[in-house]
């Protein structure tokens, strides 16, 4: 970092913003934010990963932009200004996905649009971006996006592996397993199992961090 008087770009405090949401401050399992729609895309690994990246991009940049604007926003129309900025970012992401990864965007369908109402985005803007400088706000956005994405990817991994015996569309469970009577658990692919899996993840996460128990 060139300027020694300033706080370094990746100081301990800033790193905490980035890594906190990946562990004890995870937005999904601890803050219970943003479970909404995005879980519906976790039946396979690939859409889950694309969704995770999209959410990260949106949280990071909406945090950055609104943090830059924070001193000019009239408080009476605060919410609608936030919605407009977030919606614009989501539309950008949606258009880019449609143009460059058309196959995946078909699978994600309306769920990309629903990032707008994902509570993580609005929650982090309200709770962090409006009261902090752009750089920490950006890191906070990236951290929370990744923390959320991590859960999506974990879900996508197990649901695709157990439900279809594939990962990223490639078969990973050898044919010989099937010959010996192993069969895919189709239940894993159905929507309700996503919820049960999240429940189990919360269970594991909280048994390791006892202080989070209710």
């Amino acid at each position: 970092m060139s300027n020694k008087d300033k706080e370094p770009l990746f100081s301990a405090k800033n790193m905490k913003l980035l890594t906190g949401p990946l562990g004890s401050g995870n937005p999904v399992t601890v803050q219970i934010l943003g479970i909404c729609s995005a879980l519906a895309v976790t039946a396979k690994l690939q859409p889950a990963l694309v969704m995770a990246l999209s959410v990260t991009v949106v949280t990071a940049f909406s945090n950055l932009i609104l943090s830059l604007m924070r001193n000019t926003i009239p408080s009476r129309i605060r919410i609608i200004v936030q919605l407009v900025v977030v919606a614009a970012l989501v539309i950008l992401v949606d258009q880019v996905l449609k143009a460059f990864v058309y196959d995946v965007s078909k699978q994600l369908s309306v769920f990309v649009g629903l990032i707008i109402t994902n509570c993580i985005v609005m929650g982090r803007i309200e709770a962090f971006a409006l009261g902090n400088k752009p750089w920490p706000a950006f890191l906070d956005g990236v951290g929370n996006g990744l923390g959320y994405g991590m859960i999506l990817v974990i879900l996508g991994f197990f649901r695709e592996l157990l439900g279809a015996g594939t990962l990223w569309g490639y078969r990973v469970i050898p044919e010989s397993f099937y010959a010996h009577g192993y069969s895919n658990n189709g239940l894993m692919l159905l929507p309700p199992m996503a919820l049960i899996c999240v429940g189990v993840i919360i269970w594991i996460h909280r048994s390791r961090n006892k202080n989070l128990c209710e």
């Binding site: 407009v84 614009a88 880019v96």
Partner: peptide, 23 residues
């Protein structure tokens, strides 16, 4: 407030239209 929202809407609309035209 009114000027602010008009500026915001115009900026957002221009950016989105350009990106859409491009993609």
């Amino acid at each position: 407030i009114i000027v602010y929202s008009i500026v915001l809407v115009v900026v957002v609309a221009v950016v989105l239209s350009l990106v859409t035209l491009w993609l």
